[in-house]
Every structure is written in structure tokens, then in C-alpha cells.
Amino acid sequence: MKDSPTSRYAFNPNSEVRLLSDGSGLAIYDGYSCDTHFIHSKKDQSALPALSTVPQEITPTFLVEEFGMSKLAAQHTIDLLIKQKVLGEIS
């Protein structure tokens, strides 16, 4: 999937996203498959102020800045979630 760094993605309408309180990542409920997906933060949890609000949109830059991912890992995570129909690109 070819995306520009500025591409934005939203969770599909039947998803539910939870910010894990210790800053370890996001848990995403996929309303279509009933599966649960995770975005694992690479940041040192003790160094966090964790995110205070659940993001409504995801961008590669967001994952790099907030979850400490490499650009490659961020794009791979987004590609995977698009493939699983958890995320959709905002046009």
C-alpha cells in the first residue's frame, strides 16, 4: 500500500478504541469480526505521560511520535489494520 506521510486514517464506525491506562498501547475492538487488535507502544512506560484521550484518527506520524515506532513499523501497523478493515483512509 502506498501512502503519503500525511495520509490520515479513521477507525471503522463499528470499532471501539481504548487507551490502556498504563500507556502500554491501544486496544481496538473490531465490530465487524469481533476480534481485538492492539497497537503496542514502544515508549518506556515509566517515561510517559500517556495519551489522555482516545485518538479518533491515526497517522504514521502519530504512531511515531506517541508510540515510539519507527516510520517503517508505523506504516506496517497501519497497512495491517487497513487490511483487517479496522482502519480506513480518510479522503
Partner: peptide, 20 residues
Amino acid sequence: SDLEAFNVLSKNAFNYNVLG
């Protein structure tokens, strides 16, 4: 971590997907 616990707990639930 919460994420690890969430992951393992949900995978060990018999009826997790049924309850949605």
C-alpha cells in the same frame, strides 16, 4: 503491562468473540 494482560486474558476467554 495492561496490553499484555488484555491480550492474554482475551485469548483465554472461551466466549470472548460470542459476547462481542
